[in-house]
């Protein structure tokens, strides 16, 4: 059970991180090919993809919110905490992805 929890937490982190970094990298190539400013576009994409990276990592916000609702009503606060940690983990993954992109492109955080 505990192993499953950590597995999901780490998986959520890396999925969110990957969505941001991968999306920005490929978006940047697209911008370069379409004669757009690559750096500006990549930085903007990083901000825009952040929320969607979290959604993708959690597998759709509805399931998570539904799980929180069911567990709150069922009095299983431990489960609610777990869901919140999954959300936090995916947020951290997306945020670290954005910070990494800022650092890689501009050399500053």
């Amino acid at each position: 059970m505990e192993e499953q929890f950590w597995q999901t937490t780490i998986l959520d982190f890396f999925i969110a991180f990957g969505v941001v970094v991968g999306g920005v990298a490929l978006g940047g190539i697209g911008a370069f090919l379409t004669n757009d400013y690559p750096m500006e576009r990549m930085l903007r994409l990083a901000e825009q993809l952040k929320i969607w990276a979290m959604v993708a990592a959690l597998g759709g916000t509805f399931d998570t919110i539904r799980a929180i609702e069911v567990n709150v009503l069922g009095g299983q606060m431990g489960q609610v905490g777990q869901q919140l940690i999954f959300i936090m983990s995916s947020f951290l993954g997306a945020h670290i992805g954005v910070l990494l992109i800022h650092w890689l492109i501009q050399g500053e955080l």
């Binding site: 940047g28 400013y37 750096m39 992109i101 492109i105």
Partner: peptide, 13 residues
């Protein structure tokens, strides 16, 4: 291409 962009996008801009 991604690495190139990460390294040189500022210059390209």
């Amino acid at each position: 291409a991604s690495l190139f962009l990460f390294l040189y996008s500022q210059k390209i801009d």
